[in-house]
């Protein structure tokens, strides 16, 4: 069960811009096991999408470059140093990606059928007819009615939810071992979001593929993820399984994130606990903990020295000085997660 499909170690990605270097990802490490759904959560600009796109090698160089670290896929492929020609064999075949915006990530000049068939024939060869049959199979698997008819349609003839289904079909075309879903439901309405989430869960159960789910919606995370990493300003600040993050989180940023979302089942008219301020500028990331400037518990050490990851359990760790044995004890705000677990 716990064989890793992807091991990312100290990954660093920067963008060289006219104004200087943006350190988008500043040392991210995590492991994704086979059959696991890992959620990466964080606000815009925290580096979650860049991390995922680097794993697929989809960020163009220049302006981006991989400054350091490794990402080993399936125990044998070292992604960070791979040539584009080698990467093309993996991308689409062993890794599939679902993008946020189904309106812009499909080719408007090609029919749905051509776009699905293209990937199948490139990676698996075979006759046009065979690929077409596979495309029909895929479209019915993602819940599209009348699949043979749909193959002849163009993306503009489909609704947002349908386009997202087509994207999922393309990503699944070659039975990938890893599926990266970057905000797969953000552009969709809630009732359609519920449909797509249900579909992704079904697919995960049927095919046993590993999924990296990137999202800022903690509700989606609660529903789908097995494990969660919380990112802030290009770093992982906390990592743990679903229960550990939702019911026993240790990092003040995770607390803030959990408390700032209103919940349907919570009391209204209370004030939302917002996190004051905004994330730091990654042109010049702060010397110490990146969250210190917004953290209500910040100590002197936080401003000067970046905390390492402190282990809480085998699966749970957080990068916060509060977990240091000498730090003052801080009680987690009670309303985090709504209640205590267990």
């Amino acid at each position: 069960m716990s064989t890793p499909i992807l091991e990312v170690n100290n990954l660093q990605v920067s963008f060289k811009m006219f104004a200087g270097e943006v350190q988008a990802v500043r040392g991210v490490s995590f492991t994704l096991n086979k059959g696991e759904v890992l959620a990466i959560v964080g606000e815009s600009g925290c580096g979650k999408s860049v991390t995922a796109q680097t794993i697929m090698r989809l960020v163009p160089t220049p302006p981006s470059y991989i400054k350091g670290g490794t990402a080993v896929f399936d125990g044998k492929h070292e992604i960070t140093t791979m040539k584009e020609s080698e990467m093309q064999k993996i991308r689409g075949e062993e890794m599939g990606m679902i993008f946020q915006d189904p309106m812009t990530s499909l080719n408007p000049t090609m029919t749905v059928g051509e776009q699905i068939v293209e990937g199948i024939r490139k990676h698996q060869g075979g006759s046009r007819l065979k690929a077409r049959n596979r495309a029909i199979e895929l479209l019915s698997m993602v819940g599209m009615s009348n699949p043979a008819e749909r193959l002849r349609q163009y993306p503009h003839q489909l609704s947002g939810g349908m386009r997202q289904r087509v994207m999922i079909a393309i990503a699944l075309a070659c039975n990938p071992k890893l599926l990266i879903a970057d905000e797969p439901t953000t552009a969709l309405d809630v009732t359609i979001q519920a449909q797509i989430m249900e579909l992704l869960q079904q697919i995960q159960e049927q095919t046993g593929t590993s999924i990296i789910l990137i999202t800022h919606d903690l509700g989606v995370v609660a529903e789908m993820a097995h494990r969660i990493i919380v990112m802030y300003a290009g770093k992982v600040v906390e990592e743990g399984n679903v229960n550990e993050i939702f019911y026993d989180s240790k990092h003040p940023y995770t607390w803030g994130l959990l408390r700032s979302v209103p919940r349907l089942d919570s009391d209204a008219h209370s004030e939302l606990a917002s996190i004051p301020g905004t994330p730091p500028d990654l042109f010049a990331p702060p010397k110490g903990c990146a969250f210190a400037a917004r953290c209500p518990y910040a100590m002197e050490v936080c401003l000067n020295k970046d905390p390492e990851h402190f282990r809480v359990s085998d699966s749970h760790s957080a990068a916060c000085w509060l977990l240091h044995p000498d730090a003052p004890k801080v009680e987690r705000p009670v309303e985090v997660g709504g209640r205590t677990h267990g």
Binding site: G219, A222, F246
Partner: peptide
């Protein structure tokens, strides 16, 4: 609509 909104609480949501 209410039921489609996922609640950020894994036990409850599941």
């Amino acid at each position: 609509l209410l039921s489609a909104i996922p609640i950020p609480d894994p036990d409850l949501q599941k």
